[in-house]
Amino acid sequence: MAVLVNRDTNVLVLGITGRSGRLQTKVMLDYGTKVVAGVTPGRGGQVAEGVPVYDFVAEALKEHRIDAAISFVPARSAKDSSFEAIDSGIKFLVLTMEEIPDHDVLEILSYAKAKGTTVLGPGAAGIISPGKCKLGAHPPRMFTEGNVGVVSKSGALSYEVGKTLTEAGIGQSTVIALGGGPLWGLTQRDAVRLFQEDPETKVILLLGEIGGTTEEEAAEFIAQNVTKPVVALIVGRAAPEGKSLGHAGAIIQGNRGTAQSKIAALSRAGAKIATTPKEAAQIIKEIRGE
C-alpha cells in the first residue's frame, strides 16, 4: 500500500477543461492514474481527454465511485469549487492553484476539517506513488517505485530530488509536495506521521526550506514518535535575510526561519542531515547498508 493514494484510487478532476487541467489529466492518464470524471460548470456532457465532464460534483458521483479529487480551477473559484467537493463527500482534495485569498484558504481548510476531508495544498504539486497513482504534476520519469517516503514543500524540489534518487537507483513509496505556504492543509508533520504508519515506507526523506516553523514542528514529532530513519535536506542555506524567495513563506526574519535553526532542530530529533540531493541519496544508501 502507499500513503493517501493507491493503485485503485478513482480520481475526479476539478477544472478539467482548462488548459492546465486538460494537459495534466492527459499526463495522469498516461501514467495509469484512474481519472474517472471531470467537473467544469457549464461543460457537462462534454468529454475531455476521454474523460466524461459533469457540471456538478454530485452528478459525477452518481455515475462513478470517486476516492480523491484534484483541482485546477482558477484561484477566484477555488473556495466555491472546494466547498462543493467537500459538501459532496470528497475525502481527499488536492488544490494545485496558488494565489487564493488567505481568507478563502482558511475557510476551505476549516470546512474540510469539520467535514473530515484531507486537503493537500493550496499551491501543491500533488502526490505520486510511483507505479501506482499520480495525483499531481510530477514529471513521471523522475520517479520510480521503492520504499523511501518523500515530503517536500516545493513541487520542483520534490521532482529534483526524485530525479536524483531515481538515477541513484533509489525508489520512492510516495512523494508528497505540500505547497509553498504560508498556509497549508496537510503539513510536513502529517506527512511524516503517514510515512511512519505506512508499512511500505522504510526511510523518510524530509525536504524543507527557510521560513516559518513547520520543519521544527515536524522535528518535534520525529523526536517523539518516529522509529524509522529520517533524512532531512533544508534548502536556502545561502539565502539572504528578509527576502521571500519565490514562496511567500520562504523568508528569514531576523534569526527566525533560518536553514541553520531547522537543521539543528531536525538533527537533535535524530534526523540525518544532507546538504544536497546527491548527499541525501548517499545517506539513504548507507542507511540501507548498500
Partner: peptide, 11 residues
C-alpha cells in the same frame, strides 16, 4: 521555475 530548486541552486 520553482522556489525550492531556486534555493537549492543558490546553495
Amino acid at each position: 521555475d520553482g522556489a525550492g530548486t531556486g534555493m537549492l541552486t543558490l546553495d
